[in-house]
Amino acid sequence: MGIGFGVAIALSLWAAFCILDLKCFKTALFSRPLLAGFGAGIIMGNIPLGLSVGGTLELMSMGVWNYGGAVIPDYTCATIIGVAIGAATGKNFSASIAVAIPVALLFTYFDILAMTVNTFYQHKSDQFAKEGNIKKLEAMHPLGYLTWALSRAIPVFLAVAFGTTVVNNIFSVCPQWVFTAIGTAGKLFPALGIALLLKMLPARKYVVYLMLGYFLAAYLKFSFIPITIVGIIVIGIVEIAKRESAAANAKKAN
């Protein structure tokens, strides 16, 4: 059971659209695994798989954004290819995740490739700027769309059009423990995202807030929504106290 040509094209176009969303429209919306997976699920006619793989990879990549333009694993294509191959081989969830993880890491090279190609445009634009040639500057810029779109559309197409046979073979050769191992490792990935978040936040200064979230989740076994509510209440109290003390000090000074 392979993936038909038409479906492969649809998936490549979807991958191209998602990566353009990340790089050009910059909403970082469709490129997130949650939506990339949903879309792939619709294309493959297996929405539940799209949801579960998309959701899982989204949680895995939580907190991982290309801060300041850093290169990050390509969870977008990982999700799309994962859903596609999981649905096509009929092995569903476990296959999807097992395929997605290596893809995420390998596709970083295509990202680097695309950025390198863009350097060419940058240099050309220097030339046009020196010539004062606005027309060419305007005309060349959209070519950037092409670099990004192709950097993902082509590999995705190759992966889904020819990948299912390859993956099926790998599955029949590899013993079960390999997949369990990949799955276990994958469950650790969100830790990276969280660590990245902590790097971005003033974690040392606000370590009490970290502790609050941790203990609510670990001891009281709260889920996200109750933690959000308690968090807002606590922060609200702190802010109000700050303002009252500032007002009291202002009064004293007068």
Partner: peptide, 21 residues
């Protein structure tokens, strides 16, 4: 300032809720 505090609460919670080990 407010958002960073909230973010820390969330990050602390995420460590437990999102990482299964």
């Amino acid at each position: 300032s407010v958002a960073s505090k909230f973010g820390c609460v969330m990050a602390g919670a995420m460590a437990v809720l999102l990482v299964s080990a």
